[in-house]
């Protein structure tokens, strides 16, 4: 049922369809991450002169912003698109036998491609600014994998529920908006009131973003214990989502 070629083809199509008919075509898939990166680095980091407490590097805030925003874009983008994917791809689901989870996987893959492009540009920027790389950078793919697994768990749940309650899609949008501001991505953790800072450890997005920030900005180890707890919780969530999805799959197909 699960077809690797199909997922790959859908991912490719996701890019080529978005830019179909345009002169530059898929090159736009490269231009957008570059533009975003320039905004983070030049406008927010350099021009607005953001300084990070405890660092001397002029680009520290740019880096801080980028390693928070780029993964968040992949995370939030994938979740919000996943939540609507069954309805959006209704014309396929009601006509051919397609494995429904593979539709989520293609969205996550497509967001990953954008993420990789952004990261490549980001690394080029780091090289140009004589950044001191440390070994922990090799952890990034694994943290990203954990992040997108969490995306899959939330996305699958949202996608299944959206079929029954259309409002879920909007609710997901609102929740993501709050979630973004509840996570220290563009601000630093220290400015939060103590009460909120304490409950921050229950925010899975914070654990992920903080890991990136520690690796890139502070040349530090991420909190391995938090990551292991999150690994466990994420897998449990994906399993529960998948169980719910399996028990409702028949109805999902009937309703579409």
């Amino acid at each position: 049922m699960f077809n690797v070629s199909l997922v790959w083809e859908l991912t490719k199509r996701d890019f080529s369809e978005r830019f179909a008919g345009s002169l530059l075509g898929a090159v736009w898939a490269l231009i957008w991450p570059l533009v975003n990166l320039l905004i983070y680095i030049v406008i927010f980091g350099k021009m607005m002169g953001g300084r990070l407490p405890g660092t001397s590097n002029v680009y520290a805030y740019s880096v801080y912003l980028t390693v928070g925003l780029v993964p968040w874009a992949a995370f939030a983008g994938a979740i919000s698109r996943c939540s609507n994917v069954f309805l959006e791809k209704k014309h396929l689901i009601s006509k051919i036998n397609i494995s429904l989870p593979s539709l989520l996987i293609y969205i996550i893959l497509s967001e990953t491609v954008t993420f990789i492009f952004s990261m490549v540009f980001f690394f080029i920027f780091l090289l140009l600014t004589d950044y001191q790389f440390n070994l922990n950078i090799f952890l990034v793919p694994f943290i990203y994998y954990l992040q997108q697994l969490l995306t899959f768990g939330i996305g699958l749940l949202a996608a299944t529920l959206t079929v029954f309650i259309r409002d879920v899609k909007e609710i997901v949008g609102v929740v993501l908006q709050f979630w973004f501001w509840f996570t220290p991505i563009i601000y630093v953790r220290d400015i939060l009131p103590d009460v909120i800072e304490k409950i921050l450890v229950f925010n899975p997005a914070y654990i992920l973003v903080e890991s990136y920030q520690r690796i890139f900005v502070f040349n530090d180890d991420p909190s391995y214990r938090s990551l292991m707890v999150l690994t466990l919780l994420t897998h449990v969530l994906v399993m529960i989502s998948y169980l719910i999805f399996r028990s409702l799959e028949k109805d999902v197909r009937d309703f579409l």
Binding site: N3, V4, S5, L6, E9, E17, L92, K95, I96
Partner: peptide, 25 residues
Amino acid sequence: GTGFNMECSGLENIYLNGTLLGMNK
């Protein structure tokens, strides 16, 4: 013709439609 995209060429549509019908690349 499931999944045909009007903007794409016939050739590209063969690939997409073919994979939808369960063929690999």
